[in-house]
Design a protein around this nucleic acid. Structure first.
Length: 120
RNA sequence: GCGGGUGGCUGGAUGGCCGCGGGUGGCAACGCCCGAGGAAAGUCCGGACUCCAUGAAGCGACGGUGCCGGGUAACGCCCGGCCGGGGAAACCCGAGGGAAAGCGCCACAGAAAACAGACUACCGCCUUUCGGGGCGGCAAAGGUGAAAAGGUGCGGCAAGAGCGCACCGCGCCGCUGGCAACAGCGGUGGCACGGCAAGCCCCACCGGGAGCAAUGCCAAAUAGGGACCGCGCGGGGCGCAAGCCCCGGGGACGCUUCAGCCCCAGCAGGUCCGGGUUGGCAGCUUGAGCGCGCCGGUAACGGUGCGUCCAGAUGAAUGGUCAUCCAGGGGUGGCAACACCCCGGACAGAAUCCGGCUUACAGGCCACCCGCACAA
RNA sequence: GCGGGUAUGGUGAAAUGGUAUCACACGAGCCUUCCAAGCUCUUGGUGCGGGUUCGAUUCCCGCUACCCGCU
């Protein structure tokens, strides 16, 4: 577990998102978390991606949802993220923008614990 | 003060902590500067720019625009004016050329729907079995319709009718004003000419096509693979040859003419299928730019001086949180001023760049105009 | 980002500017011991807002929703 890697890489490739979607996922009111442990020959470090579909709203709402998800992940991931894992945060309509920030931080921590605990 | 109208501006502010994108200085640590909109939106018009089509002219086809004058790089936009319609007014709305170039359509109803005619009715004569019928005159009245051949009044007549006259309307001619659309005045014609061109069309003007995911370069990878279409085996001269020249034939999104280019057994052109790549750089932000002043113009706008650099991302940058203030809504107490508590910030996020149009938009502010009321 | 297309009953499709039609489905009835099939009848619609026209599904303009293509 390398917590020194404070800047997680951002997922950009569609295939990475599809692989994460086929792995395990946990739903919370403000977001849905998908996670996958990569095979050793893939990239190093913690990687994370963000997805907001048209269901979330117009462009302003989608961008704002992604910014809040980034802010939450930036607070939580350096302590709780595990090396060699891909995470994907999916925005949800209304709640991703309106839920209090502290609740979302707590939700992400428990969601990460649950997703790590199930596997390995 | 109340009601109405027009044009414009703004559309949260400041600070603390933790973060984001670009540029720049530095070996680095780190620092400095900049960082969404009036619509960034819809993609409805007009351009710049790039590639494709060989270029020019004319004709044709197709598409668009359409009162007049001006502005502009250009426009279907803007400004000013005219005409028509709405409103008491300020003001608002209008795809607003041509219906005597031609074709087409006008359902139902109605006698008749476009060019004349006549169902009921009216009038005269003849006739009658007294219900009416025949011939002629007439087009005012009735009813139908979205629309019925000028309207009103007087005269006139067998009954009537622009049949005659006055006014209004309409057409034509002339004069005056205006760059013009058009308006005003005078004369004249007894009325001839229904509507639809966002139906075909005619006239005038404009327009080649595709789009920054265009396009160019670098790197990587794969199988420079396959099918179809359209051309196409010419003659002579010089030269050892390569090649050059002349004649002829052919080619390129409709035709013609002219000029140029290319081809005349090529591995070249066009269309399509299949395979690989989903990386990087350029294009990429200084531009019909923005601000202020002066001059010209009724205005749109133009000219000029000074100042200024104002986002360039590519799973895509402005966020999270806290405090105070500024607006706003609700509740409680109070005659009121006010105090306290709660909620809470419109529409919306650049993606090559400009000029417009259209659509969305909580609230707030400013200026001008019209009407009414009041005071002086 | 750029470009293109579609919208008609619950579904799929027609309709020169003149009463919106057809099939299936839904509902009711007939037939049958019952079901299916068949027959008869009924309900229900031009995405929204304007304009042209006497009259608009159709013509024109603006919105909305959905679909497709382009590296």
């Amino acid at each position: 577990m390398s917590t020194e890697e404070t800047i997680p890489q951002t997922l950009t490739r569609r295939s990475d998102f599809l692989r994460a979607a086929r792995s395990r996922h946990v739903a919370r009111p403000g977001f849905i978390l998908q996670a996958r442990k990569r095979t050793p020959d893939e990239a190093d470090g913690v990687r994370i991606g963000y997805t907001c579909s048209k269901k979330v709203g117009n462009a302003v709402r989608r961008n704002r949802a992604k910014r809040r998800l980034r802010a939450v992940a930036r607070d939580v991931l350096p302590g709780c993220g595990r090396d060699g894992w891909d995470y994907v945060l999916i925005g949800r309509p209304e709640t991703t923008q309106n839920q209090p920030f502290d609740e979302m931080v707590d939700d992400l921590k428990t969601a990460l614990e649950k997703i790590h605990g199930n596997g390995t």
